[in-house]
Design a binder for these strands. Structure first.
Lengths: 183, 183
DNA sequence: CTGATAACGCAAATATTATTGCTTTAGGAG
DNA sequence: CTCCTAAAGCAATAATATTTGCGTTATCAG
């Protein structure tokens, strides 16, 4: 798994480069799709020298992964309504919301292409969150983490990638309902 | 959607080039992953001049797509046991089997990256097949096509892409069982 | 405030990928 | 068998991407 190198001088100019590169990547991925983005392209859009990008990240893959990871608002509070079903519905809604942003969707697709090498931090986090939600209700929980992944995350991700128009306002509720049938 | 150009002389040498390129693509995709394969690479491995590849397919995406389409055994018989649940279990097993081939898995991942542009023929076919399976049992069918996609195809594809080690011999049965709970 | 140096920018050198014009080979209609 | 020409090969060129050496800027420890 490749991550952004440790910055010994994370302030001022370096930070500026970092954020403008991030913005550039997001814009370009949204505009052209992950496949058609190159490092020189990103550098130009960011108003930064390509060399700086090469030296900091080495290659596009590492860079995209870094950007994607950054994007995940990893420490946001996860839903806590007191009821697992409501929690999951809300959680699913947030995920769908996240991927309704074309940049995030494009980055997910990009991540898919190189998954295996570079496991997506994004989805690992989702699994961790699902674990927290389920375990909150201890042994009495009617669902396992895998069931949540298969029943919510997988369909959402599948649709984001392959059927982008098939998600709507009811999707979170529908999928969650399905998950609780027979429980 | 881009397809291989019509061959006015499909015999002999042309055919040889075609098959050696196909083999080369599959080998390389398996070895290095879709991301790290280039046309010159494929040409060299295939013992073919890069120009021939450029002229026939134009770009990597088109080429991969052509190869992938070729790979999908589109006209194989789909399961028909007389029982929907058995049919679906067997069908899921076939899909998992298909993607247990590293080349097919890598091509799926590659397809994800450019989905949106180029909708995967592969997955469209899966949906058609699911439709046939479900409709075979007419109005009495306990499942909709979407439920089959969400409950079988999505988890399988999700796992193939992001959690390649999580599929095993029981997965088809497990997912299908889950699908029939409460029905 | 100052000095050491991380990180950036610039420019030149390489390497890689894609295009183009022309020549050669060989599929297949007649 | 012969001829026409599709498709492959070859080589030179153009376009892009990557690497490298070196000078410059400016962060941050002291």
């Amino acid at each position: 798994m490749s991550t952004s190198p440790v910055q010994k001088r994370p302030g001022g100019r370096s930070a500026a480069v970092l954020t403008s590169v991030r913005n550039a990547v997001e814009e370009l991925v949204k505009e052209k799709g992950r496949e058609r983005v190159t490092i020189p392209m990103v550098a130009e859009r960011a108003g930064v020298n390509p060399t700086s990008v090469y030296r900091r990240w080495g290659d596009l893959q590492t860079m995209i992964n870094d950007i994607a990871t950054y994007r995940l608002d990893p420490k946001r509070p996860i839903p806590e309504t007191g009821d697992l079903r409501s929690d999951l519905t809300e959680w699913a809604r947030e995920i769908i919301e996240h991927y309704s942003n074309p940049t995030n969707a494009a980055i997910l697709r990009g991540g898919a292409a190189s998954a295996g090498d570079t496991q997506s931090d994004c989805l690992r986090n989702r699994r961790a969150e699902a674990g927290m939600l389920v375990e909150r209700y201890g042994a009495s929980s009617p669902l396992t983490v895998d069931e949540v992944i298969d029943g919510l995350v997988a369909p959402i991700v599948y649709r984001v990638i392959f059927l982008p128009d098939s998600l709507n306002n009811d999707s979170a509720k529908d999928l969650t309902s399905r998950l609780f049938e027979g429980r």
